[in-house]
Design a protein around this nucleic acid. Sequence first.
DNA 1: CGGTATATTGAGAAGAGTCAATGCCTGTGG
DNA 2: CCACAGGCATTGACTCTTCTCAATATACCG
Lengths: 250, 250
Amino acid sequence: MTRATSTLKTYNQDCSDCPIRHRAVCARCESDELEQLEQIKYYRSFEAGQTVVWAGDTMDFVASVVTGIATLSQTMEDGRRQMVGLLLPSDFIGRPGRSTSAYDVTAATDTVMCCFRKKPFEDMMLRTPHIGQRLLEMTLDELDAAREWMLLLGRKTAREKISSLLTIIARRDASLQLTMTDGSLSFDLPLTREAMSEYLGLTLETVSRQMSSLRKEGLIVTEGKRHITIPDFDRLLEETGDDSDGGFLM
Amino acid sequence: MTRATSTLKTYNQDCSDCPIRHRAVCARCESDELEQLEQIKYYRSFEAGQTVVWAGDTMDFVASVVTGIATLSQTMEDGRRQMVGLLLPSDFIGRPGRSTSAYDVTAATDTVMCCFRKKPFEDMMLRTPHIGQRLLEMTLDELDAAREWMLLLGRKTAREKISSLLTIIARRDASLQLTMTDGSLSFDLPLTREAMSEYLGLTLETVSRQMSSLRKEGLIVTEGKRHITIPDFDRLLEETGDDSDGGFLM
DNA sequence: CGGTATATTGAGAAGAGTCAATGCCTGTGG
DNA sequence: CCACAGGCATTGACTCTTCTCAATATACCG
């Protein structure tokens, strides 16, 4: 692997500049602990579409997503695929104490990861409770997310599934940063139709049809293939099947 | 709450006699740590069908399932329900650091739980790494299980879903204890058809039809409503859609 | 022995899948 | 700078699985 690109260089300096410093597995670390982590960390970048590891392959590192989006998916013998996780910046990849990956890990967009060599990381976990504590917290959050996704996969209609996915991505983009003006939200879909279908347990065609149907009804506006605007977020929310008032609004 | 029943008494003595001693959240505890846990633990029993907590209710305890089976499920406004977890003996209920339950917790069979008052348990977690470590391990296992279930919910056919559920229950019963004679397995289904349908993301009628179909083809034999015999486990395994050789056989 | 829960079965409707054709961006090379 | 290729997305027609609604049947409880 060649020298880090300039994008990478930006991060390769110092944990204190890191955009995910306070949300990742290192969130609770003190500065001396961060120094130790810096000894065993290195950055890797992946292009959109590139596979990070295949299910069953040995993984000699664990990692945090710094920028970009990665996906976890499972494949059946006959090729049916189901995405089982969507990894956003600060999310953790790999399982301490296990040497192989249980899932295919793929970069959905261009992605930068902060990797730790597995053995040193595991050793450090033993003497640094802050890491294990934070990892427990993050794992519990992921478990909640997985369970919410189970409800979507098991019980929601195609239209509800699409609406749910769009609101989730919109919410995330809105909270993490950008783009709300008059009350409308607008963002770039980081997933292809195929990736969406793998996430939602649908076929690509059904995804496409439902997107068209939402577009025809004015619930979303599309621009090019991937840019989405949601003129009225609450109206889209009503299509998700979720408790409209219950959950927190962004 | 009245005095413990005779069944409860059996457990109420001593962690060292506990049937889940080496698998539950306390698995790694030393004897002095167990003594501390004994100070804050108490047993509760639930009858089949009884609700342990409703989603949204405050939960002032966390618990381990000692005997029996409990379920976690989510409900949509219009009544659609999806089970998101099946809790077997040694599984953990509740989330440290959260005061309300995210799910309905229901006893599927008569169940005994070893409960810990939440606040003392959380305090103890802070000074007892063994507990947090074990909980992390268990949570990662649950996350894996949830992700496997996502594949089932998103991609498997009704027949594959039923076969998968039956093999999972059969495997568990076989490993935990009993009943294999000539190569056939036999066990009591701990779930009603309705509970099965909630778990599998199907309707009750579809569950029933698929059970009948498996019965007609001789893949299972039923006796009464709930007792199942699997004459040829491998043959049933082929119906699950899973990698036949890959995974460990019981 | 009857009553109530639970489970089975049937017929028809509906949602999503399949197969196939067409359309639309993006980026590359002439 | 334009044209065209290749990947991605859309749309259509038809099929098939699963759901829905409704009627029985069967097991389990007192």
